[in-house]
Design a protein around this nucleic acid. Structure first.
Lengths: 221, 221
DNA sequence: GTCTATATACGGATAGAC
DNA sequence: GTCTATCCGTATATAGAC
């Protein structure tokens, strides 16, 4: 599975996320027409990610956001109750589609080796597809409990695969928790340091393959 | 070399950094007595790291800082021109000692294998010793050019070691830039996710050894 | 050197017209 | 649905006493 194939199968779009957010927040979003709402939500999220990348969410003023989206201050407040509310929406509501894909992948493949590869790659490919969401969540929501527990969850999936692989004699015994942590660190590297890989001209497929190779050299019997 | 030994040889302290900062900023710091200045600078930095860890530097108000340090607003402004200036001081001035240690380590050991281990461990141990500095810089200064070029610099050291190891027939040929990136990602994991390793009761030595083992399984001929 | 009191600006949020 | 004008709290920064 490479990135191109992955996109065909699982490929949700930013529009899908915005629609999801719109439908999940009927009480805070005062806009009636779904089409305009979804459209503007996309603009808003994109602008937030853009500004927050440069100066952080806290340092972004509503006036910054107004300028970047081309919408007025008043208009913005029809889409969320306030700045805090906007943050919360991004932190919590936007993830349902992404989570769905991750869970789906982690159920495919019986063989531990294939399963490990699939799960690792799926995570990287998703973070490529929705990089701004991943980046923003990491930088602006690191200490939120929900995010920590998500990290815990995906780590446990990896540890589980490593353990069942060991039980089947495919993987070496070892400190699987620690190995799973290292995997997560390397996955995060992809969306945290985009500038580096752009500069080095390293594609997402090359990155993912390298990670899998590195890992198999260490784990396989 | 383990953490305990490392500390004995290279162990600078927070006080050393504060003294360095004091001496490097005679025009912005209005305090005459070095002892009180260094003392209070330590308090200030520690408080900044503490508050910024929870809510980020931008969200920290000067009143927060005043309360946490026990110093008044007026007193704080005798130590830096303003909040922006404080950020800049932390981002740029505090690193000279740390850089010195890193450079020193990277010159020891002729043998590539030993050198790789030494450099990797030294970086992790330094980040343990000065975790708040590393964490803060990552979170609050990621897109600063100076920080990017530091990352570039340390990455090139790693790539260089891998290449010379390949030339000597000790390491396998491979994509050394990418491998060096992965190493950096795993090193960063240590100071970015302290809560996780505390919870799993994994020591810095165990973490560092695991990283070295993982890498050698991949690199050694 | 450090404090308290205060000037000044800026940012979040709302009212009400269109 | 979106705009402009405006309110008001909060944050940075300074003045001047001790």
């Amino acid at each position: 599975m490479n990135y191109k194939e992955f996109k065909k199968i699982y490929g949700a779009s930013n529009q899908d996320i915005s629609r999801e957010v719109y439908r999940n927040n009927p009480d805070t979003i005062r806009i009636k027409k779904e089409k305009t709402a979804v459209n503007n939500l996309e603009k808003i999220f994109s602008a937030v990610f853009n500004i927050a990348y440069k100066k952080g969410f806290q340092a972004m003023s509503m006036r910054d956001l107004s300028q970047k989206t081309g919408m007025s201050l008043g208009a913005l407040y029809a889409y969320f109750k306030g700045k805090k509310d906007l943050l919360k929406i991004i932190q919590t509501q936007g993830w349902s589609i992404i989570k769905k894909d991750l869970d789906q992948v982690s159920k495919t493949h019986e063989n531990p080796r294939e399963r490990l590869t699939a799960v690792i790659k799926a995570h990287i490919f998703l973070s490529e597809l929705f990089r701004p969401w991943f980046y923003f969540t990491f930088m602006e929501a690191r200490n939120i409990e929900a995010v920590k527990s998500m990290e815990d969850h995906t780590q446990k999936i990896l540890t589980g695969i490593l353990e069942s692989g060991e039980a089947q004699g495919i993987f070496k015994p070892g400190d699987h928790d620690l190995t799973a942590s290292m995997i997560k660190a390397m996955q995060q590297e992809w969306y945290l340091k985009r500038w580096k890989y752009k500069k080095l001209k390293i594609s997402v497929d090359r990155f993912a393959d390298h990670l899998v190779n590195l890992l198999e050299a260490f784990c396989l019997v």
